[in-house]
Design a protein around this nucleic acid. Structure first.
Length: 903
RNA sequence: GGGUGGGUAGCUCAGUUGGUUAGAGCACCAGCCUUACAAGCUGGGGGUCCAGGGUUCGAGUCCCUGCCCACCCA
């Protein structure tokens, strides 16, 4: 929009956005400077998965971060938003393996570890920047010069340094553990990678004969094949049915092994038969019972999900085939008592979708208990605050019930565990500097490194300090750590937020951030999870293409951020696009009507002598919106922030202010009177432009593109010699500070309210009685209140200009003759003179009004006749109720009298 | 099974320590191409605030019980 003659009547953002972004980026405005003395404000991005593409959750999360960063930057802070991606071990390896198979029909093992990793890096170099590019489309003002990747050299050094220290302190250990095993991916999964789904299955009742041949006990199970690994049967210690059997032995069918009947309170008496088989190596609850009762743990599975040697005759069968055979054999032996339908929850690998098997294997762990104390304290003491605060309970709950963290992943892509094993003396040690040549204990050259890599979250946990240069002491680390705010989704409070707090306290000796803002989950418009398969997923890039980046940002930010999830409807994008268009057109109006406004006049500001009521009113509202927007942002109330600026622009500036100044703008007669003088016109122009300029600043953090575009246009016209335009770009202009409410503001507000109310009543009468818009009507405004009479009389141009008026009279008595429709605002009565044939319609309209008022009167009277109310309620509440009743009574009397005259 | 959040207009949601006649956007109805904007303007209809109890002068708001929904954990 270089000159106003080229302005389109519709906002057309598509060419503007990339150009503006390039200008910001080239100008270096995103770059933080540790040398600057300005106070820092820092956010580290939740690193998106390097294989990922921008989804709607990212759009929300990053919009909120960008609002905070842009706002603080405008406040003069040295704002740093650290961007980057994580290497997403399983996801990335999976993607590259799939591609390798599709393109070359090769398995990763065909290539070997080194060659395969070269391929992954090549893939990452080619595709890993996609999501970064998409963040730029969204307008994110990250400091791209500090982009990090969890696998880059610096961050890898941080990972090894942390590993070594934890290992040396005995906080990393290797243990047998029942892990969630994905037979398909052949790796252990963290608890968080397991998705529980309700599955329709069966409950098999199986008879286990007593070892001494006297009777039997019946157990119920959902996974009969695991009986091959049973090492006990458990009953509740107080279960009268089984009490006498505790301590005796049963003969495990098919395997012919003797196993004990044990007592454990874990057993639910009501479930199944009240007796459960115990398979410690293949069920987490059984595992715990196994530990409690020192039971044998028999693994019956191979890593790829087949039955192994311990399954005897069933060896080699795949799990489900094994189940079928076991059930058949039990039935053949008459040991299968019954089969019931049963729905139960089954863990699935959230990536491959396969059923997760609890599986006993050697893994590396981080001991969590010793680390949680300071992390809990950091939140309890308030040094770290969650927003909304109720998420703190979620955090405590997890921290207090924390389990050790399995950090091994059976993958090639990731930080390889720096542990070595000696084949000769069995020594196990950690080495991070360089690959060792031999065993430090026995000097044997027969050593090998652990083949596994670390969980990706291990490196993400270090993100707030590793990205700033740790373990080196850098100026960045010194200035920007602890960071200020973390914005993320609640589902990763455990595996990311909590671990960052732990690691930050452990290795930096300080919290990683002081505020954790939890943004809601984005659901579809009916509150269900979005999914590609059901077609409910919204692609933010598509929205940007079709609508624009500002609108998607406005939409995301306008949802209530304190709720748990938001139901996103694409209608909202449209309404925000309309809003952008509204602002655009308001600008067109301003530019069209200020062509003769000089830079000097604007720089000088409005002349107080010529400020009209509407000027004072919009300035007061601008100030209030500034105060509200700032307060909202301080409390992370993004929706309240957007709402206050939205209302300022649309409902105050466009709906009223622009309409009210039109007469002044349009008057060009040098000999004009009153408000229609050249000086008044200039004043209106100055206010019009200055308010718009401040609106742009207020809106910039959420809608950076359109505001920058318009602001540049204002700057090019009026920038000379005006300190308001000192900054090269809006994004580094100063955030406005609200002034204390000016004296007389309440009077201005109430005068304007009366006028707006009067205009509204006249419009409503015309609308309800279907008076054609072009028809001019005579109006008689009557009141005995001289203050109001003077005000209305003096400011009658507002009413004249905003409604189609013939004759307009003011006085203490109704002087116009003929039929009229009547509205009452307290002691002011407005008569709208109309043709006689509308009499019936007016009666109906009045009846409705009277009924409304009567309801109010009786309500207020009831309250005021209650002595307990008079005595119990605060005096101001009682007075307000009296005032209300008074007002309603006056209005009601006036309308009732009028109604009577219409009979 | 445990935990957390929620149930307010047809839809999505606001509603500040309890205090005017419960609001907004979208949708709907009626009328307008009024020289910034039809992606607009003006007016209108629409709610037993999930149910039941309690506290209180006063409850959408606080407490209890129940029902329903969502998410997290097991």
């Amino acid at each position: 929009m270089s000159t106003e003659t080229q302005l389109s009547s519709r906002y057309n953002p598509h060419d503007l956005e990339p150009a503006l972004y390039e200008r910001w980026e080239k100008g270096g405005y995103f770059t933080a400077d540790p040398v600057r003395s300005a106070e820092p404000y820092t956010i580290v991005i939740p690193p998106p998965n390097v294989t990922g593409y921008l989804h709607i959750g990212h759009a929300l999360n990053n919009t909120l971060q960008d609002i905070l960063i842009r706002w603080r930057r405008m406040q003069g802070k040295d704002a740093l938003w650290v961007p980057g991606t994580d290497h997403a071990g399983i996801a990335t390896q999976h993607v590259v393996e799939k591609k390798l198979w599709k393109d070359e029909h090769l398995d990763r093992r065909d290539l070997g570890r080194e060659k395969f990793l070269e391929r992954v890096w090549a893939w990452r170099d080619q595709y890993g920047t996609r999501i970064i590019t998409q963040l730029k489309r969204l307008g994110c003002s990250c400091d791209w010069s500090r982009t990090r990747f969890t696998m880059d050299a610096g961050l890898s050094r941080a990972v090894l340094t942390v590993f070594k220290r934890l290992f040396e302190e005995g906080l990393i250990y290797r243990g047998d553990y029942l892990v969630n095993w994905s037979p398909k991916l052949q790796t252990a999964l963290s608890d968080d990678e397991v998705e529980y789904k309700m599955v329709k299955g069966h409950l098999w009742h199986i008879r286990y004969p007593m070892a001494d041949g006297e009777g039997s006990i019946i157990v119920a199970t959902t996974r009969p094949e695991t009986m091959l690994g049973d090492t006990a049967v458990a009953v509740h210690p107080e279960d009268e049915r089984y009490k006498h059997l505790i301590g005796r032995q049963v003969k495990l069918p098919l395997m012919h092994r003797l196993i004990p009947i044990i007592a454990d309170t874990f057993v639910e008496r009501e479930f199944g038969t009240g007796a459960v088989k115990v398979t410690p190596a293949h069920d987490p609850n059984d595992y715990d019972m196994g530990l409690r009762h020192e039971l044998k743990m028999i693994n019956i599975l191979t890593p790829d999900g087949h039955l192994n040697d311990n399954a005897g005759p069933y060896k080699g069968l795949e799990i489900l085939a094994g189940r079928k055979k076991v059930v058949e054999d039990l039935e053949a032996q008459g040991l299968l008592i019954k089969v019931e339908d049963h729905e139960h929850s089954v863990g699935h690998d959230y990536r491959s979708g396969c059923v997760v098997e609890p599986y006993l294997s050697k893994q590396w762990f981080v001991k969590m208990k010793p680390l949680t104390g300071p992390a809990i304290e950091a939140v309890r003491s308030g040094r770290i605050q969650f927003v909304p605060s109720h998420y703190e309970n979620v955090y405590y709950h997890w921290m207090e019930n924390v389990r050790d963290w399995c950090i091994s992943r059976q993958l090639w892509w990731g930080h390889r565990i720096p542990i070595y094993y000696c084949a000769d003396c069995g020594h196990i040690w950690c080495e991070v500097e360089r690959a060792p040549k031999g065993c430090p204990r026995c000097s044997s050259p027969r050593i090998h490194q652990d083949p596994d890599v670390l969980d990706t979250w291990f490196s993400s946990a270090l993100w707030p300090f590793s990205t700033l240069g740790w373990p080196d002491k850098t100026p960045e680390l010194d200035k920007y750590y602890p960071t200020n705010t973390l914005v993320t989704a609640h589902e990763i409070i455990f595996f990311w937020v909590a671990r960052m707090i732990i690691m930050g306290l452990k290795f930096m000796g300080d919290i990683p951030f002081s505020k954790v803002v939890i943004n809601p989950l984005v659901m579809d418009e009916h509150g269900k999870k979005m999914s590609k398969s059901s077609g409910t997923a919204i692609d933010p890039i598509e929205v940007i293409d079709q609508i624009c980046a500002d609108s998607i940002r406005l939409t995301m930010a306008s949802y209530p951020t304190q709720s748990r999830h938001i139901s996103l409807s694409d209608k909202r994008f449209e309404s925000m696009r309309n809003f952008s268009n509204k602002l655009w057109n308001a600008t067109r109006f301003v530019l069209m009507n200020t062509e003769d406004l000089s830079a000097e006049s604007l720089a000088a500001g409005p002349d107080p002598k010529f400020l009209e009521l509407e000027d004072k009113w919009i300035l007061a509202n601008l100030n209030r919106a500034t105060q509200q927007a700032t307060a909202a942002l301080e409390q992370f109330g993004f929706d309240a922030y957007v709402d206050s600026v939205y209302k300022l622009i649309w409902n105050y500036y466009c709906d009223w202010y622009v309409e009210l100044v039109k007469d002044r703008l349009y008057s060009s007669d040098p000999a004009g009177q009153g408000r229609l003088t050249p000086a008044s016109r200039t004043t209106a122009q100055v206010v019009l432009v200055s308010v718009l300029e401040q609106i742009l600043r207020l809106l910039h953090p959420v809608a950076p593109f359109i505001t920058e575009e318009i602001w540049q246009n204002l700057k090019s016209r009026w920038g000379n010699g005006n300190s308001r335009f000192d900054s090269d770009v809006l994004m580094t202009a100063r955030w406005p500070e609200a002034a204390p409410a000016a004296e007389g503001e309440a009077a201005i507000e109430s005068a304007m309210n009366l006028i707006q109310e009067a205009i509204g009543r006249i419009r409503a009468i015309r609308g309800e009685l279907n008076v054609p818009p072009g028809t001019k009507v005579d109006i008689d405004i009557v009141t005995s209140n001289t203050v109001r009479l003077d005000l209305l009389d003096l400011q009658q141009h507002y009413i004249r200009n905003l409604t189609a008026i013939g004759e307009l009279r003011f006085g203490s008595a109704h002087t116009l003759a003929g039929f009229s429709s009547t509205a009452v605002i307290e002691d002011v009565t407005i008569h709208v003179m109309l043709p006689e044939e509308l009499r019936a319609q007016e009666r109906t309209r009045l009846d409705k009004e009277i009924a409304r008022l009567e309801k109010g009167v009786s309500g207020a009277e009831k309250k005021l006749s209650n002595e307990k109310f008079i005595g119990g309620a605060p005096a101001d509440v009682v007075q307000a109720e009296r005032d209300k009743l008074e007002k309603l009574k006056i209005e009601l009397a006036a309308l009732a009298a009028k109604r009577k005259g219409l009979e």
